[in-house]
Design a protein around this nucleic acid. Structure first.
Lengths: 343, 343
DNA sequence: TTGTATGCGTTATCAT
DNA sequence: ATGATAACGCATACAA
């Protein structure tokens, strides 16, 4: 930062006090209209740009929201960030975007940096490798920084959370398979440490239980959130088959489903004739596959928007209710589940 | 911001001066080891997190980079932002991400906000609707804020720029069509106000001229960067045909190509048998289409990375050379151009 | 090695 | 309506 025009310069230029300049610039009521005009003219003429850093120091408010995402390029997040940005822009906040690279240590580091930068609040989607919640609690309690989790949440520590109803959505999509007549259904699960992984697993088992369907030993395989994990998990499943194997797969998300589909094809099996599969996310690629993937559409923009709104509410009103918000999902039925509609 | 632990509190707690605390916390050489240890212990015990806002005010440096993108969700940008973030993280900078929504007014507003927040530099990819460069010049000259443009650049105003070599890449991909034997080739161009739109158009015409191929009247249609524009432009082209129409299309980018392909199909024409087409971007969808799209891969991550590196170089060394950097592209030959390789 | 005074650019507070 | 002073939290410059 080179030295720039300040309130002081304007004040000297006009031979008035800094306070009058400040008041004029901030459109406060008790300033003479002519004085105000003079100040505004001078500030324009001198290309004055207020120093928000100084302002933030005295007002203890930065109008900045810290955002922590595990993987910026993950189709869900650009949309979510877009939603966050839109709300932030409208409400006069900036967003400081950071990336944890799914790494708990890095997540902790960026959270500390954001706290140090005195962001007014934090929007966090938890990294896969996170195993304890101390950092979030500390930041909230000791630093008084509000946190709203989105998509991947941490419950029971006094933070609001905005996500889709993962459990219910997983139950619904599993039900869809069951209604189509599938009985031997396996699940490629997410990491057990991440809330949405657990919730989707729960939704899957719930649907199965409701229909009195057994989940054979080894039919729940941890795949993680990425294509490679889905590929490996599916191979593991197909290689360990003794009595015919599963007839349908519920994958924790679309990338995992893509990997699984690759493995299925490599085993010489057809989709959906031999094995049906459904995903979760409505990745942009899902409808373009050779066998388009039945999946659950997550309104990412909506999640980001709601999360940002909730966070700003917490920031501007300490008494804002802490709660978990769910955004409605939508089933997208394509041909991979064996119920060809209009494809 | 609630009131938090400060250097003063630590100093009082230990009965020493603020300066000693400050030195210890910043690992300055001239501090007694035992004193330093005491300070570090106390700061940990008291959950001290330094106030970067205050630090920035006195040091006139925020370690923050402002990023302006026209459309966060545009496949290219998440990758580029990822590259920016990676470099920033390694060099100890944060990024403040803003979105112009392709709107010149909004871009101007966010640039002013970022300047007000005293970011150390600006990374800008210009919005489509921008028609003059005053704002960039002002920010650079009057505020002394370095700007590095990326992807969509503004030349000749003393800012560095990182992009792919659009003209050369467009020339190459057009050449590819020409070598395959196509002679009647049309171009769906980008907005004429955006640098990459112009450069690609230039590359196209250059390739045609080099091979002494004529570009018939009406064979260059402005389509913009989006699918809908490509669709409309292609329809216009096909509807205005008098003597057979084009045998091949060079689209300004993949989304425009997608739109054009839709129009071609709707006219009952086959790709590539009746009309061949190539795009530009290697959008994630390009290879998944029914007829996979031949295109130019843009290493977005690389562009972001180089741009961030260049900007930080400008920030940390006022004499850093202003220059235009090009990142190498790669042709991705698929079946839409009629030269089926391994697809 | 440690401490004191001062200033970064702005606004809150109290005064006129 | 306007101004003087102090304060925000920290680091620079200088002194001891």
């Amino acid at each position: 930062m080179p030295r720039r025009v300040t309130v002081k310069h304007i004040a000297q230029e006009l031979g008035i006090s800094m306070m009058t300049v400040s008041r004029a610039l901030n459109d406060r009521p008790n300033v003479d209209e002519r004085t105000k005009k003079k100040v505004l003219d001078a500030s324009k003429r001198m290309s004055y740009i207020p120093n928000s850093v100084a302002k933030s120091l005295v007002q203890r408010k930065t109008h900045t929201i810290g955002v922590v995402v595990p993987e910026i390029t993950h189709s869900f997040f650009p949309e979510a960030i877009r939603g966050i940005e839109e709300v932030a822009y409208k409400k006069g906040y900036q967003i400081m975007l950071t990336h944890s690279a799914e790494d708990a240590k890095r997540e902790k580091a960026v959270i500390h940096t954001l706290a140090s930068k005195r962001v007014d609040g934090l929007l966090i989607s938890v990294a896969e490798s996170v195993h304890n919640n101390e950092i979030y609690k500390q930041i909230m309690k000791q630093q008084g920084l509000p946190i709203v989790f989105f998509d991947r949440c941490v419950y029971g520590i006094g933070a609001s959370c905005v996500s889709i109803n993962d459990e219910e959505s997983a139950r619904m999509i599993t039900n869809h398979l069951i209604k189509l007549g599938y009985k031997k259904i396996a699940h490629l699960s997410g990491p057990k440490t991440v809330s949405i992984g657990l919730a989707r697993l729960k939704g899957f088992t719930k649907a199965m239980e409701e229909h009195k369907l057994k989940i054979p030993e080894g039919y729940i395989v941890e795949a993680g959130f990425h294509e490679i994990g889905g590929y490996k998990a599916m191979n593991k499943l197909l290689d360990s088959i003794t009595n015919g194997g599963p007839r349908a797969i519920v994958a924790v998300n679309d990338p995992a489903a893509f990997g699984a589909m690759k493995a299925i094809n490599e085993h010489g099996l057809r989709i959906p004739e031999d094995i049906a599969i459904v995903g979760f996310s409505d990745d942009i690629r899902a409808e373009l596959l050779k066998t388009p993937l039945t999946t659950v559409r997550q309104p990412a923009y909506e999640v980001g928007k709601k999360a940002a709104e909730k966070l700003i509410a917490h920031i501007e009103n300490k008494k804002e209710k802490i709660e978990d918000l769910a955004v409605e999902t939508e089933q997208v039925i394509r041909s991979s589940c064996g119920a060809v509609l209009n494809n």
